[in-house]
Design a protein around this nucleic acid. Structure first.
Length: 287
DNA sequence: AACGATCTCAACCGCAACGAT
DNA sequence: AATCGTTGCGGTTGAGATCGT
């Protein structure tokens, strides 16, 4: 299978791999490691470009490749991760041992994309919910989309809360209400990341010289700038920086998925079952 | 059985990021 | 600082398989 070779310049072979070529590549990599992909074809006796060899190895010949159809768990993981990181196939693949980015990309384009498109076409919100109620995968997607939107909204509220605090004077209730609203979104990915190493690093480096907000601490949210300390201009600058840094943290955290997974061991981007149970009120419309 | 339409997925292409010089 | 070579990623392609008529 595969695309027909577009050219045959320099005598480099393209197109589908033969079993003989596969054997040459596997034997060489197992004996010597991948090393330099550019030099590998020549050393392994293959008439292929290094790029082609790397692709063949990583997507097909690697011994830890998991074959066969995607399990429901993998299916749901792909839906959830895609809702968070988008088309970052390598990042999603890093969370699914044995699956390659190419495989996940194909699965998304052939199965999930089509499924989502069909749901989107000609269906109003009520019809979508009915369908979601009948289809576990769609329901899962809807739940995660809800959680994601809530997280975005919370971030927005947090930013405006900071601004409000600065421009209209100190009010204990403004930060309290923000935190109370955020408490409902406790199981979302951003909060879990906030409580991870990345979040800890961020807190220690960015949020400095501010007394901890007890309510915020209770749910693991960042302390807001302490009201009324310093001039309004200086505080405003701090607030802007805090908001920028918070966004930078979120960007960084998403980029760090794979790293976190390895470094924290039990770390999961998904909430544990007990937390999910506690937060089930979030998803009641779909249950 | 024959044929066209649709689906699947291995492989290619182009580009960006990164390191070496 | 600029250039070059290498690697990895995401988007796309198209041959073969499967389905529908």
């Amino acid at each position: 299978m595969g695309r027909t070779p577009c050219c045959d310049s320099k005598g480099i072979k393209k197109g589908p791999w033969t079993p003989e070529e596969d054997k040459l590549l596997v034997d060489y990599v197992q004996a010597n490691g991948s090393g330099s992909w550019r030099l590998l074809p020549k050393l392994a006796g293959l008439n292929r470009c290094g790029k082609s060899c790397r692709l063949r190895w990583t997507n097909y010949l690697r011994p830890d490749i998991k074959r066969g159809p995607f399990t429901p768990e993998e299916h749901n993981s792909i839906l959830q991760l895609h809702a968070i990181v988008g088309n970052k196939w390598s990042m999603i693949a890093a969370q699914l041992p044995g699956r390659t980015d190419n495989e996940i990309k194909n699965y998304w384009n052939t199965h999930l994309k089509k499924q989502l498109r069909q749901e989107a076409l000609g269906e109003d919100a009520a019809a979508t919910r009915l369908a979601a109620a009948a289809c576990p995968a769609a329901r899962h997607m809807a739940q995660w989309e809800t959680a994601r939107l809530e997280a975005e909204a919370r971030l927005s509220i947090l930013s405006s809360s900071i601004t409000t605090t600065i421009t209209s004077g100190p009010t204990a209730s403004s930060s309290s209400s923000t935190v109370a609203g955020a408490e409902h979104a406790a199981p979302d990915i951003f909060l879990r990341l906030w409580n991870s190493e990345v979040g800890e690093s961020f807190r220690s480096s960015v949020v400095q010289g501010q007394g901890p907000d007890p309510a915020a601490s209770a749910v693991g949210l960042p302390a807001l700038p302490a009201p009324g300390d310093g001039s309004s201009a200086a505080t405003s600058t701090i607030a802007t920086e805090a908001a920028d840094e918070y966004q930078a943290f979120l960007d960084l955290a998403v980029e760090e998925f794979a790293l976190l997974h390895g470094r924290l061991g039990a770390f999961s981007v998904f909430p544990p079952a007990d937390v999910l149970a506690e937060a089930s009120c979030l998803f009641t419309p779909f249950e």
